[in-house]
Simulated assay, not measured.
Amino acid sequence: MGFTSELLETVTFQGLSSTPARLIAAGASLIIWVLSVLLLVALIFRFEAAGIADQIGLAAVSIILVHYSLSGRFLLADIAIWLALRTPVGVLYRNDRKILGRARKVILRLARQHSFASFLPYSNINPAVAHADSFEVFKQQEAGTLQSWLYDTKNLNTAAHLVFQIALVEQALAAGDYPRPEF
């Protein structure tokens, strides 16, 4: 089956952010949002003190309406999305999605090459291959719905665990620790 160290790193989600890293990123992102709001409030008070708050508000509303008329998109939502993607939690989110996407591609590539159910005899060496969740992967692959099924992170984790268990058996067989099971 050709289980390389790169494949094993992919199906074990190497590089995925940890819970403490996510909490730190969420806290840092919250601080950034709070500071942004405080900066905007401070600007509003300065504009009010200078007597130009009405003119700036009118200019802002005009820009928002022109942008919406030309693009069909709400400018403040675009700015919020732009900022969210650049906060620490947004960076972690994009990185995690990239890692999960790579794992999904590898599992689907393996699924096109092999029927996962054909590795069921490996359960004689590693009982985790025949774990109850593995049969759901077999069923989804047989039904041809594996690709859509893998978009749920829990399901992706189940399929990655199965591939990892198969890889462990493949490595043990390659090392000569066990005789190759009959298929």
Results as ranks from 00 to 15, higher is better:
1 M>L: 01
3 F>W: 04
3 F>V: 12
3 F>R: 00
3 F>P: 09
4 T>N: 11
6 E>H: 04
7 L>T: 03
10 T>P: 04
13 F>W: 01
14 Q>M: 03
14 Q>A: 01
15 G>S: 07
17 S>M: 02
20 P>H: 01
22 R>V: 00
24 I>H: 01
26 A>R: 03
27 G>R: 00
28 A>Q: 14
30 L>W: 06
31 I>T: 06
37 V>I: 14
37 V>D: 08
39 L>I: 03
45 F>T: 11
47 F>H: 13
52 I>S: 14
53 A>V: 12
54 D>I: 11
54 D>V: 07
55 Q>I: 08
57 G>P: 03
57 G>A: 14
58 L>R: 14
64 I>W: 06
67 H>N: 15
67 H>T: 15
68 Y>I: 08
68 Y>R: 15
70 L>E: 15
71 S>C: 05
72 G>L: 08
72 G>H: 10
74 F>M: 15
75 L>W: 03
77 A>H: 13
79 I>M: 15
82 W>S: 12
84 A>W: 08
85 L>C: 12
87 T>Y: 04
88 P>C: 06
91 V>N: 07
91 V>H: 02
92 L>M: 01
92 L>G: 06
93 Y>V: 12
99 I>F: 06
101 G>A: 03
104 R>T: 04
105 K>H: 07
110 L>N: 07
112 R>Q: 07
112 R>D: 10
112 R>N: 05
114 H>Y: 14
116 F>E: 01
118 S>L: 11
122 Y>W: 05
122 Y>D: 07
126 N>S: 05
127 P>Q: 09
127 P>K: 01
129 V>R: 03
130 A>Y: 08
131 H>I: 02
136 E>Y: 09
141 Q>D: 06
141 Q>G: 00
144 G>D: 04
147 Q>L: 06
148 S>R: 05
151 Y>D: 15
151 Y>T: 13
154 K>Y: 03
155 N>T: 11
158 T>Y: 00
159 A>F: 02
159 A>R: 00
159 A>C: 02
160 A>N: 10
165 Q>G: 00
167 A>Q: 10
172 A>R: 11
173 L>S: 11
176 G>I: 05
177 D>E: 13
178 Y>P: 13
178 Y>V: 07
181 P>K: 06
182 E>C: 03
